[in-house]
């Protein structure tokens, strides 16, 4: 393929806003269907959370996207390049930090990352500089000359994700990036991932940690038993649960039946319960509706003592779509 043909090919196949388009992607291991005809679009420069329990098909999907595994059926396009037809081109656009750190046990972090930096196109002092910067950011500079086998699980994980921060690829994939990493380290890595996105990378974050997916992802795809069961922003997904938000309002002296019926009349409210002096509303978009409800109560002479509201978690979303709890699945 000439350069001109390649340019024409990319222009024809690339939708500007779509970084990755997955079409019927499927993987069988023998007779076991690990990934089941997935269709998915990941937008340019977004952090896409890939949420699912262990064994749901996250890693297999990512390995197919990185051309490490060959799909059994279907394909995916990375910035217009078909992973089946142009694996070399796809690999030049994608970088991955694996779930299990891929470090050869006899090498040191410094050796591993210098070699990796060179493979990614850095030369001489530039390679040393970028490795030093990334290792320092990850608090690994002191441990740079230890052998991989002497590192703790968290340290190995840091070396693994350092590869992606050195590479700065168009599509950066992190497979459970903060597993085995302490809380301070997690926040540091989340900030670095956001920074990478801000520098122009599209991020795929495979995780089974609900909080991580919630705070980091622009959109989330829930994968369960090899199938994508839901895709949307965390808020959109939470709002798809009928009555998923819970609003508890403690009032003085209870509520009249008329007022209860009035509350039930809100379109977003699914159910209203009155227990002693606390009215409990199951609704959607609580943050938008709360001022309206409070105003209504106060206008009708109700004295509000306290308000407590709770949004559904991603675990509730997962439960809604799969009938299982993510934590139980793990």
């Amino acid at each position: 393929m000439t350069i001109l043909q390649e340019i024409v090919f990319v222009v024809v196949n690339m939708d500007r806003d779509i970084a990755i388009k997955v079409v019927g992607l499927t993987k069988y291991y023998g007779k076991f269907l690990a990934v089941d005809h997935i269709n998915l679009e990941i937008y340019d420069r977004e952090i896409f959370g890939f949420l699912g329990p262990n064994g749901a098909g996250k890693s297999t999907t990512l390995l197919m996207l990185t051309t490490v595994l060959k799909p059994s059926e279907g394909t995916a396009y990375v910035y217009g390049y078909d992973i089946r037809k142009y694996p070399d081109k796809v690999r030049s656009l994608i970088g991955i930090a694996f779930q299990d750190p891929k470090l050869f046990w006899i090498h040191t972090p410094y050796e591993i990352l210098i070699w990796h930096a060179k493979v990614c196109g850095y030369r001489g002092s530039k390679a040393r500089e970028v490795v030093r910067d990334v290792l320092s950011m990850l608090n690994m500079w002191e441990a740079r000359n230890k052998r991989a086998m002497e590192l703790s699980g968290g340290m190995r994980k840091r070396v693994e994700i350092a590869k992606v921060f050195i590479q700065k690829p168009r599509v950066a994939i992190f497979d459970e990036p903060t597993a085995q990493i302490d809380v301070t380290g997690k926040h540091m890595i989340w900030d670095m991932i956001r920074g990478l996105r801000d520098e122009g990378s599209t991020i795929i974050l495979a995780t089974n940690e609900l909080y991580e997916a919630d705070i980091l992802s622009d959109r989330i795809g829930i994968i369960y038993k090899g199938k994508i069961v839901a895709v949307g922003t965390p808020k959109e997904l939470k709002d798809t649960i009928p009555g998923g938000d819970i609003l508890e309002i403690q009032v003085e002296g209870g509520l009249s039946n008329g007022l209860l019926s009035r509350l039930e009349g809100y379109r977003e409210v699914s159910k209203v319960e009155l227990v002693d002096s606390t009215v409990k509303l199951y609704l959607n978009r609580v943050e938008e509706l709360l001022p309206q409800i409070l105003e209504d109560l106060i206008r009708n002479g109700v004295k509000v003592k306290s308000v407590n509201m709770r949004e559904p978690t991603l675990d509730d979303v997962f439960m809604h779509y799969t009938g299982a709890r993510l934590k139980e699945e793990d």
């Binding site: 051309t67 490490v68 070399d88 690999r91 991955i96 694996f98 891929k102 470090l103 493979v119 990614c120």
Partner: peptide, 18 residues
Amino acid sequence: EEAEHGFVDYLLSLPIDR
């Protein structure tokens, strides 16, 4: 040994022609 440590996946994921 590399395959047993999963290191082959890393090599296969690199932007290097197979």
